[in-house]
Design a protein around this nucleic acid. Sequence first.
DNA 1: GTGAAAGCGCTAACAT
DNA 2: ATGTTAGCGCTTTCAC
Lengths: 375, 375
Amino acid sequence: MIAWRNAIDCIYFIKKKSISIIIHIFAMQNDNSFMKNKGEVTIHDIAKELKISASTVSRALNNNPRISTKTKNKIKETALKMGYRPNIVASNLRTQKTNTIGVVVPRIYRNFFSNAISGMEEIAYRRGYNVIITQSGDDPEREQFNVNSLFSSRVDGIIVSMAMHTTNFDHFKLFYDKNIPIVFFDRLCAAIPTTQIVVDDENAGYQITKHLAEQGCKRIAHLAGPQNLKIYSDRRKGYERALAEMGLTIDEDQIIYCNLTREDGTKAAQTLLSGTNKPDGIYCGNDTSALSVIIYAKENNIKIPEDLCIVGLSNEPFAEVITPSLSTIKQPAVEIGKQAVLSLIDQIENKKRPEKLETIVLPTELIIRESSKRK
Amino acid sequence: MIAWRNAIDCIYFIKKKSISIIIHIFAMQNDNSFMKNKGEVTIHDIAKELKISASTVSRALNNNPRISTKTKNKIKETALKMGYRPNIVASNLRTQKTNTIGVVVPRIYRNFFSNAISGMEEIAYRRGYNVIITQSGDDPEREQFNVNSLFSSRVDGIIVSMAMHTTNFDHFKLFYDKNIPIVFFDRLCAAIPTTQIVVDDENAGYQITKHLAEQGCKRIAHLAGPQNLKIYSDRRKGYERALAEMGLTIDEDQIIYCNLTREDGTKAAQTLLSGTNKPDGIYCGNDTSALSVIIYAKENNIKIPEDLCIVGLSNEPFAEVITPSLSTIKQPAVEIGKQAVLSLIDQIENKKRPEKLETIVLPTELIIRESSKRK
DNA sequence: GTGAAAGCGCTAACAT
DNA sequence: ATGTTAGCGCTTTCAC
């Protein structure tokens, strides 16, 4: 007898988002005597069945306190028996709210993004929101299409990591102008004054460099990414701050600017490690380039970490299993996703957006592995 | 105040040197004479503006051939000028179709799934569908909740990789009974006669074993997964078929049944490689266990591939970067996702579902790397 | 505590 | 080629 109550309430959790324990018991639904052949059972069918009005049914199913417990129970029971399923599309149209969040990322399959998306879904699920995923493939036009499409779907808000070369922000402005919440993460958009979720890249660079110095490195090189992107310039700034603090000189020859690809890493390793004034520590702007450096060092019989300490950044899955395992910075991808959704839902439900650009900074974690552990 | 914004907007767009049409449109958008204060522009607003009927506007925007090109153009132009955005929610309600696909996977962040999802989104995008992602976390109740929730959202179909221990299939039956397409992939559901997308695991096992024999291995061991799961029993069957074909004996001592975790791999390696009758080739049921075997072999000074060839299965990201790089089977995750959506959309749009269980088998690819290349 | 009625924004007969 | 009308299934104001 408790069964039907839980079941129908559970269905309604999908629409509302009461925070209650959910028990699923979807039995009793195969009683076909009530089933209409065409289409779904509606609240009108239930109303007719019970000779009451549709509005009462609607109220009862939404746990409106004005309905007596007795009729409420009767309605829920009948709803379950008839195999009623709320039509959320209709509800969405009527209430002008979809409980849906749109997500736009460059590429879903990248480790960082799939983890972030996983975190987003986790929170969205708990709060009663759906998540529509789209990927731009780093194509500004496709990003624009996706964002416009999400608007037409009337999502309640969007979470975006921008395509690499997006320069026109009209599609974001569309949301901004209509007061629909946007949250950026990872690749930010300075043109839209809203919430952004980032990790403390400056501090990551600082931690890495300090760690290298503590391991006894006297000459620490840095493979730096494109400095027009904030994440990479921050990673370099942290490096310079640490060097200064440790009393080490900043030598521009020891900073190689590149795109941090596998090829770039190899080239940089050649440049740095073939000269006379070799570094005894290299802080790579990401794990990919660090991988190249490790391979180059091994091929050239440079001992890691004795002769050369190497640290990467991002904690790719391969970092812990390569030989030697790679010291790196763990970015809390899942946590970033969770924060993004929390912040977005807060804006959606409290109808207030930040006055100006608001940056939420999440901490990173230095993971010390063989490639830099000397003692 | 409003004037100021207009000015800024215009300057902004002119500075960007965007296509002049866009400048025009956005300039007009800020002309408040068109804008309703509350809510969005609707086809009725456009109709009123042009003194025509809303249905004509609807037809024009949907490129209905019965509307003359002249009025069509005029309507589209006005729609743009007024900043009209179609309300898909309303359209969905009316047409009883959402152009949305629901996806349920155990964990989004797993490499295989994020790749599959990426493939799904790719095709869905091209075919004009949205993708709602949910994850079960291998919890049957959460899976049930997600599937029911997707039903209430009136998705046009779902794609599912089941939770590990789902035993009640009522939630899938709900879709099946109402003739809403379902496609399973990876973790299948035999209880629902529908389309399933899988890879040819039997053949993968066969290829691996044959490859090992061709490299000169005479005694080939196998780390086998739980045999109640089809993928793992198939992987073993291919192994036995190859052995038989190559005239090698099937020795049950050389088959270790386990869950293929890191720990299982280490334990299996100990068992196999410490005895007197050591194998000279090991086919591991996945890459994770293969990793453990490689590490064990390296620690015990067993030369790879000279003394021992090792092959994994699934091509995890680490396989190509560990030392020695790991030979493995590449599963076309992205392709699986694409196939799943193609098959689902076919069922949605042609309103025909398979009479009985229909299995689409995708080929795998053997990638030979250092861990098994002897010549 | 319950009902009547209006309408969210769109589409699609059925007219003309 | 265009207009009229009637909903899709739900919520919600206003009555009683």
